[in-house]
Simulated scan of single mutants.
Amino acid sequence: MKYLFFIPILILLISPACQSDRKVESDSHFLLLDSVIQKVEADLKPLEDDISQLAAYSSALFEKSDSLVPLVNEDKFLTDDNGFFYNALDNGKESTVFISLLAENKNRSVREVFTTEWLDEAFREITETRPMVCQVYFNSSSNFSRLYPPYDLLNSIEQDIDVTAFNFYYMADEVRNPNRKSVWIEEVYIDPVGRGWILSLIHPVYHDNELKGVLGFDITLSDLMDSFLENYDKKLMLIDSQGTVVAGKAEAIEALSLPPLKNHAYIQTINSDSFRREDFNLFKSKSKEVRRMASKFLLEKENHHSFDMAGRLFQTYCRKMNIMDWYLLDIHD
């Protein structure tokens, strides 16, 4: 019986030690997440300055429009039988340019196409100095588009496309972006010219207090994943504020019992036509535990959650990014 007296004391001694060990382990996971986020944002943050400077340069071009338009070689532009205006590319160093058939004032659009010819050199410089940026573009309020690197226009775009109808345009307009600053399009989307799922940074261009168009930098999710997540031997996953998986390692996707992955490669799935955003939304998971985890992180703003999946105990750690409303998860078993 006398030994029973020491049991409570032993428990009191062991308990703080266990809690200390758990805290050390927890801190290590958060340090990892903070490190990954820091590296991601170290590459993404400078793009905000780049696109702001490019917007200022674009505004200056419109200021000099009268002197710039006569300098353009008009012969490289074609108009087909439908009245579709576009440029004939021959060297791969110029943007693909077209004016939508929906343009209300074609003469105005043509003039602005000529005015923005000098953006091509700046576009090339961005893609050469910022490997994360796969394409740069200017979409005009007068319904023309200029995009670099060039692409197969006639087999990629409907001639009556409305370039102002996409979120990579209207999220920077006067109503949604009254501060006229750069905006991250946090909801990934399918690129109209075939580069798969895209994350975009956009910035409005104004002249004489009129919105002339929107600049954009595109980053493919495959590049984002290759650059960051694959460098770590952890089950890492990026989700947006709605609980949809933006990018993730195959092990993390499988741990949460999300849909089967083609060739066990998430990026191949997300680039395919069969990808459906709702299939990769944690709030719509068939697992109550996964839905509860999403609620803990996104709604209750907690940063740690334990759950059981098929007899496996998982510890999941969460950190919110700074420049976007995205969350990085470390799923640990």
Rank of each mutant, 00 (worst) to 15 (best):
K23D: 10
D66W: 04
D160F: 01
E278M: 08
N91E: 10
G92W: 01
I198R: 01
E121R: 09
M132S: 01
R180S: 03
P16N: 02
F144E: 08
R195C: 07
N107E: 15
V24E: 15
T129N: 12
D308N: 14
F228E: 00
P192Y: 11
Y327S: 11
N82Q: 12
E186M: 06
L32N: 02
D160R: 00
Q159M: 12
A172K: 05
A56H: 12
M171T: 08
H304R: 14
E174V: 13
K93V: 03
C18D: 13
N143T: 07
L328H: 09
D81M: 07
D80R: 03
I190H: 06
L54H: 04
K284L: 15
I239W: 00
S100G: 10
M237P: 07
L224T: 04
C318P: 03
K288I: 15
E187I: 09
G83F: 03
T129M: 04
E104C: 06
L221K: 00
F84Y: 13
N82I: 02
I161N: 08
I331F: 00
K39P: 01
A55R: 05
P192H: 02
E48G: 07
Y3T: 09
I267S: 13
Y206L: 04
L31W: 05
S285T: 11
Y137I: 05
K76T: 14
N87G: 00
S241W: 09
E25M: 06
L258V: 04
E251I: 12
V69R: 04
S15L: 14
E210Q: 11
V246T: 09
T127W: 08
S257C: 13
P259G: 06
E25Q: 11
D66C: 09
I7V: 11
D66R: 14
D50I: 13
L32A: 02
S222T: 15
Y327M: 11
L298W: 01
H203D: 05
G92K: 03
N82Y: 01
D273N: 10
W118M: 13
V110G: 02
V175Q: 10
M171N: 11
S142Q: 10
A265S: 14
A42I: 13
Y206V: 01
